[in-house]
Design a protein around this nucleic acid. Sequence first.
DNA 1: TGAATTTTGTACCACTTCGAATAAATATAT
DNA 2: ATATATTTATTCGAAGTGGTACAAAATTCA
Lengths: 213, 213
Amino acid sequence: MVQKKIDTESKPRGRPRAYDPQTALRRATDTFWRAGYSATSLDEIAAATGMNRPSLYAAFGDKHALYLEALAAYWQMSLAATREALAGDHPLDQALMRAYEAALSIYFSDDSSPRGCFVIGTAVTEALEDVEIRNSLAAGFRAMDADFEARFRIAREKGELKADADPAALAMLASATMQTIAIRARAGVPRAELRALARNAVTVICGQRAGAI
Amino acid sequence: MVQKKIDTESKPRGRPRAYDPQTALRRATDTFWRAGYSATSLDEIAAATGMNRPSLYAAFGDKHALYLEALAAYWQMSLAATREALAGDHPLDQALMRAYEAALSIYFSDDSSPRGCFVIGTAVTEALEDVEIRNSLAAGFRAMDADFEARFRIAREKGELKADADPAALAMLASATMQTIAIRARAGVPRAELRALARNAVTVICGQRAGAI
DNA sequence: TGAATTTTGTACCACTTCGAATAAATATAT
DNA sequence: ATATATTTATTCGAAGTGGTACAAAATTCA
C-alpha cells in the first residue's frame, strides 16, 4: 500500500513512448557535435534518435530548444568531469593533468573519429547571433575559470605555488590550454600529441621551467 | 610605346566587371564571419557583395570554393599581423602584447559588434567533416606556433628567458592564449577584459610571476 | 467492451537552398 | 556597322528546410 513515489509507479494513460528521453538527447547531441547546429537538419536528428519529427517537437520543442538542452547537458557533464578531476588531494600538476585527461576522453569519446569539444565545436560559431547560446558560453567559461582558480588558490595556500602567484591568471591559462586542446582535436591533432601539449602547459603553469632571467 | 606590363594596360574584350574581386571577397568574408559557413546562404553573400549568384560562381566557383578562398586570405592576413607584431627588437613581453593587440583589433574590427576570429568562429565547426578546411586549420595553427616559437628561441638566446626554457612549450601557451581571446571575444567578453587577460598570460609566460616553490 | 488519452507515422505546406540555363547588356576588335 | 567576347540579370528547377495537421496505433480507465 505504500505509494513509492508520486507518478513513478502509475503508468500514464495513453500510448507509451517508444524512446527514452535521456538517450534521445544524447543521440541528438552526437548529431549536432559532428556538423554543428546550422548544418544539422531535424531529419538527421530524427534518424539518429529513431524518433520522427513530431515526436521530437513534443519532447523537446523546436530545433533551437533541443540544441539549448543539449548544450546545457554537455556543460553539466563537462564541468563535473573537470571538477572531479581537480578534486581530491593530488599534487597540483597531477590534478591538472587529470583534468586534461578527462577532457581528452570526452573529445575522443567517439570510436570512429575524434570530434573535440561540443561547446567549442558547435556553440562558438552560433554565439554571435544567438543570445542564449552566447550567454551559455559566457557562463560556462566563467564556471571553468572559477574551478581552476579555486584549485590554484588551494595550491598557493598549501605552498604548491609561490605566495605571489596569481590564481586567476593561472586559471585563465589553464582554461586556454583546455580550449586549445579542444580546437586542435577538431583540427585532427592526435591524442598523444595533445597529451604532450597538456604536459608542457602544466609544466609552465606550475612554474617548474618557465624561465625568466 | 613602352608596354608597361603584359595585360595590365590592355582592356579585356567583353562587358567589364561591375565589382572588384578583392572587395567582393572581403564582403563575403564578413558575411561568413557573422553566422558561420553553413548558416550563410549565397543569397546573403550576393546581397553583401552586390553581385548576383551567377557572377559569384563565375568569380569564385561554388560556395565551398569561395569560403576556402576567404579562409586562405584570412590566414595570410592574420599570420602576417602576428609576425609583424613579433618582429622588431621589442622586449619579449612587449612583443607578445603587440601580437595580442593586433589580434584584438582584428577581432573587434567590426564597428557594430565584436566578432572574434574568423578561423575560430567559422572553420573549427566545419573542420570535422571537411578535409580541406581541417587541413587549412592544422597548417595555420602550425604556422602560428612556429612564429611564436621562433620569437621565444630568440628570447632565450638574448637572455630574456632562462637557458632551459622550452620555446615550443611556451609557443603552445602563447597560441592557446590567442585562441582563448578569440573564443571569449565571440562569447561577448569586452575588449578591455581580454587585454587584461593577455597581460596576465604574458606575465606568466615570461616567467616573471609564475610561482613555483 | 468501449471511451478517453497519449504517442506515432504519414503526408503536407510554405519557404529556402544551391546551382544552372538563358537572355539581355556592355564592352572591344575589325 | 558588324561580329565577337564577356559580364550581368532574370528565371527556373529540383532538392531540402523547419514546422504542422491529421489519422492510425497503443495504452489505461470505467
